[in-house]
């Protein structure tokens, strides 16, 4: 069943085409629809990643909750890194920690890893099996296991609902 992936990619491509063109004229829309259909069929006939997206009302609500958490984390950690960089003593405590993830789908893992990377102060260096290796500018507290888990859990509880 790759129909869902094809439909998702078709609408994403069509939306990008319409935004870039900035018009809703019939010929433009038709050319865009034809191209999107062709590309989504070619690209998704062998790729199943997009099938893992769940489309439901609950998923929509969780998408917005996830975006809210993500943006607040983004702002908080940006200020945190700015403070560390500007302070004369350079108060950093860097290290690479590992954290297990509960997510099974590839899409969910990709978004989790990218969310961790986009939040300043932490970035994903490697993923081996279920384990994320995360570089942190400042490891807080003595319990590194707990700190590493807290980085992953922040986003994981929302992505679990979205992608499983």
């Amino acid at each position: 069943m790759k129909i869902k992936g094809i439909i998702v990619v078709f609408f994403v491509l069509l939306a990008i085409w319409l935004i870039l063109n900035g018009t809703a004229d019939m010929p433009v829309v038709l050319i865009g629809a034809g191209l999107s259909l062709f590309l989504s069929l070619v690209l998704c006939s062998k790729c199943s990643v997009f099938n893992e997206i769940r489309i439901s009302f609950r998923a929509l609500v969780y998408t917005f909750m996830y975006l809210g958490v993500f943006i607040s984390e983004l702002v908080k950690s940006n200020f945190d890194v700015a403070r560390r960089v500007l302070s004369p003593a350079l108060p950093i405590n860097p290290g690479i920690v590992k954290a297990e993830t509960r997510l099974k789908s590839r899409m969910g893992r990709m978004i989790l890893a990218n969310s961790i990377t986009l939040t300043p102060g932490t970035f994903t260096i490697d993923v081996i099996g279920d384990t994320f290796y995360i570089h942190c500018v400042h490891i807080e507290g003595d319990d590194t296991e707990k700190y590493a888990q807290s980085i992953v859990r922040k986003f994981e509880k929302y992505l679990e609902v979205l992608y499983g």
Partner: peptide, 25 residues
């Protein structure tokens, strides 16, 4: 701030942290 961080951070990993992340916010 990211540019300052790029100059002050001690190794490549911390520089990646300070530098590339500025593109986010």
């Amino acid at each position: 701030f990211a540019a300052v961080g790029l100059l002050r951070m001690p190794d490549i990993y911390n520089r990646i942290q300070a530098g590339t992340k500025a593109t986010t916010l």
